[in-house]
């Protein structure tokens, strides 16, 4: 199966019980969904669990999917709720996994850069969950304010406020600003 087949056809097939079509949807969206979970939860193990729960829930709920939004929006909604539930129930480990990045030509500069990125990750992990979700969807997934509002079930002005607050907090933590 390849990218020539539109999502809507795969979704309809999956709604009819086609497991292969659903697997193709998983392959298409697991990276985005995992990225959201990882940025919100800060732990690979938690993110992996949240992504599995997301797709299992999606499979169960597919018969009720009405095609009134993109499948990606619907999946973002599920993973965001899963991540927020995990944060609320404190099942998240609260520790941040480091991402291994190859050192560039100047190791000292690369180390300094990595330290700045770590500071941002730490700052994101400390954000209130609703701000964290909005920021991750906007800055890491590139969703529009409208799309973020749709995913989070909030108004656009409310989402803008959350994102602005989150941005200010993040900037405050960066050494480049201080």
């Amino acid at each position: 199966m390849n990218g020539q087949v539109e999502d809507s056809i795969l979704v309809r097939a999956a709604q009819n019980g086609d497991v292969d079509a659903f697997e193709e949807l998983v392959r298409r969206y697991q990276t985005s969904i995992y990225r959201v979970a990882l940025r919100m939860l800060g732990s690979r193990a938690d993110a992996q669990d949240a992504v599995q729960e997301t797709f299992v829930r999606a499979w169960r709920a597919l018969p009720r999917f009405r095609h009134d939004s993109a499948i990606s929006t619907w999946l973002y909604r599920i993973v965001t709720r899963r991540a927020l539930d995990r944060i609320a129930s404190r099942r998240s480990t609260g520790t941040l996994d480091e991402v291994e990045v190859e050192a560039g030509p100047d190791p000292a500069q690369a180390a300094e850069h990595q330290e700045r990125l770590r500071a941002i990750r730490r700052a994101i992990a400390k954000l209130p969950p609703d701000q964290r979700a909005a920021l991750v969807l906007r800055e890491f997934e590139g969703l529009s304010y409208q799309e973020v509002a749709q995913v989070l079930g909030a108004s656009v002005p409310a989402v803008k406020t959350r994102i602005h607050r989150a941005r200010l907090t993040i900037i405050q933590q960066t050494s480049s600003w201080q």
């Binding site: 497991v19 998983v26 995992y34 992504v51 797709f55 499979w59």
Partner: peptide, 12 residues
């Protein structure tokens, strides 16, 4: 990850 997800879906 894909295999883990699909294993759970196939059980369902």
């Amino acid at each position: 990850l894909t295999a883990q997800i699909m294993a759970r879906v196939r059980v369902l």
